[in-house]
Design a protein around this nucleic acid. Structure first.
Lengths: 136, 136
DNA sequence: TCGCATTGTATCGTACTATGATACAATGTC
DNA sequence: GACATTGTATCATAGTACGATACAATGCGA
């Protein structure tokens, strides 16, 4: 369910954070669900347990997870997640969207190709929309 | 025209790369245009010239810029930019879009808010669309 | 042609980070 | 209370980010 790339230049624990955030956002794992113990996930991915622990800690600090010794790590409910300063959050989101779109355009994707790609991924997060690709 | 944040946790040269990619994708700077000398841009941003040089080198390696001593750094034309393995490129783009959308949803943005934000930023890159927010 | 300014590049040092090996501490179970 | 399970802390090592400084190539004017 979680996949990382050791060849990538982005740190492993950052990849892990992004993957877990994606799973939470998509609802694949929900509030109260347990995550695998650091040793198990580390073994599954072939990495060190500290690297997994680092990702769990980052997400715990961000308010998405809750960890405690002996009991494991569980997903927090959405209501108790501090999102931070609205202006800063918006800037950060704009920045990441901007980078992604620039990447797409520089890679040669057309506006329609990019829009289709985004619609597909939005459907996975928010559920299917009413106005895209209506079947006959 | 280029803005970076020293407080951010993302490396300065990576921020610079993202900013310049954005400017090229948006057409703000086009093939043949000269970029500021490393010393000038470094002074403007209050950073070391090596950091700017690193960003220029990364983009030169990526085929977006062309640098040579004494002559400066210019933007390459789109036709001579190698984009890499299509499958890898698509994976990378999907990954960055996925992260951005997950970020948006976890921050509490609705589907429509996110779509509006994306439409706005797409308009900046590909030009205004025909089907969004048509004025009366 | 020569001297010099301009520009990118290479070298080196310092602080920090990522990852891993290992040991520790808290919780639950029998 | 003994032990397994789980997260956490400590330490070491390799790599990276950033900067100060020196070098090399190109172009221009005297």
């Amino acid at each position: 369910m979680i996949s990382i790339s050791l060849a990538s230049d982005v740190p492993i624990h950052d990849q892990l954070v992004a993957e877990i955030r994606r799973l939470i956002a998509a609802g694949t794992i929900a509030a109260g669900d347990e995550l695998p113990p650091v040793r198990q996930l580390a073994a599954d991915l072939g990495i060190n347990l500290n690297t997994v622990a680092r990702a769990y800690r980052d997400l715990t600090d961000a308010g998405l997870l809750s960890s405690s010794r002996g009991r494991g790590t569980v997903v927090m409910s959405g209501t108790e997640r501090p999102t931070g300063e609205p202006a800063q959050v918006r800037r950060r989101i704009e920045s990441s969207i901007s980078s992604a779109l620039s990447d797409a355009k520089l890679a040669g994707l057309s506006r329609d190709q990019t829009r289709d790609l985004i619609n597909t991924m939005m459907a996975r997060l928010w559920g299917p929309s009413c106005e895209e690709g209506a079947s006959p």
